[in-house]
């Protein structure tokens, strides 16, 4: 049996997990720093790095104890080495390298994006090639996953990430940070969806254009005009419900349009017929979007899967799992591996 320790510190979650090649998560811990960053309305990189250092070493010890494992029993140590907030990435990477060096175990440098899109293989039965939609606070991408080391970026956002667009919209409405998840709840209360869409017409950047890139910043500006023009004071409930629905509806329209192009592009670039797609990243928690995307995937005869939410947001198990996949293929990395704040995957031509 292969056992890998995974460490994730690239944003505001300090996370450690131990996973086996039999797809068993022996132990995992996540500490979210969200309460620390809340008062700043977003993640502050220097504060995030400081917090990772404060907690990570004891978390590693706790996870190993909880899994009843000695460090010698590990097959390898995998850590996120980018992309992300570099101060935090370095803390996790150095801890991982230290364990690898001490116990003479392979070190595996994991690209955070690769870990996200491989996670469904930990929880579901998924075979290469497949299409992945990664939607989180930091990323919005379509990727064709042909193998663990052969991924092609089909499209990405040219400005804001989708989760960021949700959070910023929520912020403009006065919702507490991170407000993205509230949008779905508010939209469910919308009494007259058609009226909401008519009252709050929002732009759909790049809609019906070639390719499958995204753009959300125009949408943000439009929302700003809608919510900041009324007089000061709390937003009226009906307005909040309508704006939330109009926003979410527009986002789904954009994603569906981009998805059609992504599926065509992925089919063209894939040697075998595509039968599966996955949605990963924190925004996959939004059921309205998930169901809309799933319906569209089905019309293209694609099975659509997503891992459980705790594995969709940043976590250590996805890093450990990606480590197991690399180890299985014989891919490991030197202890001189650098942290990479930017680490794009290959772009499809």
């Amino acid at each position: 049996m292969k056992i890998v320790l995974g460490i994730e510190t690239s944003c505001d979650e300090t996370a450690v997990a131990v996973v086996t090649n039999e797809k068993k998560i022996l132990s995992h811990q996540i500490f979210s720093q969200i309460n620390t960053h809340k008062k700043y309305g977003g993640v502050v990189p220097e504060i995030a790095a400081r917090n990772h250092l404060d907690r990570l070493d004891t978390m590693i010890v706790d996870v190993m104890k909880d899994a009843h494992l000695s460090y010698n029993a590990l097959s390898a140590i995998a850590t996120t080495t980018g992309p992300g907030l570099i101060g935090g990435v370095m803390v996790g990477m150095m801890a991982g390298k230290t364990i690898a060096a001490t116990y003479d175990k392979p070190f595996i440098a994991i690209n955070h994006l690769v870990a996200h899109v491989l996670t469904p293989r930990l929880t579901e039965n998924i075979k290469f090639p497949y299409l992945a939609l990664l939607v989180s606070g930091g990323h919005t991408q379509f990727l064709l996953i042909r193998d663990i080391d052969d991924m092609l970026e089909l499209g990405t956002t040219i400005d804001d990430a989708l989760g960021e667009a949700f959070d910023k919209t929520a912020k403009m409405m006065g919702l507490p940070y991170p407000g993205g998840p509230y949008i779905e709840q508010l939209a469910q209360k919308c009494r007259d969806p058609q009226k909401a869409i008519d009252t709050y017409p929002l732009p759909k950047p790049l809609y019906r254009r070639a390719g499958c890139d995204f753009s959300f910043s125009g949408l943000k500006t439009a929302i700003a005009k809608q919510v900041q023009s009324p007089p000061d004071g709390d937003i009226k409930p009906e307005d909040a419900h309508d704006i939330a629905h109009a926003f979410q509806h527009t986002i789904l329209e954009i994603i569906k349009d981009r998805l059609q192009n992504a599926i065509c592009l992925a089919q063209d670039l894939s040697q075998e017929k595509l039968t599966q797609m996955v949605i990963v990243g924190g925004v996959s928690a939004n059921r309205y979007l998930y169901n809309g995307i799933k319906d569209m995937a089905h019309t293209h005869t694609l099975e659509c899967l997503t891992p459980p939410l705790k594995l969709c947001t940043d976590n250590g198990a996805m890093i450990a799992w990606a480590g197991l996949e690399f180890l299985h293929k014989g891919i490991t990395h030197p202890l001189s591996f650098p942290a990479r704040p930017r680490w794009p995957l290959g772009r499809a031509q």
Binding site: I60, I86, G87, M90, A95, K97, I99
Partner: peptide, 19 residues
Amino acid sequence: SFTGVRVGLSVARTLANIR
């Protein structure tokens, strides 16, 4: 250097804790 401080401490603390 903030980063330098963290690099040294992450290694030293991890080593001390696991051993």
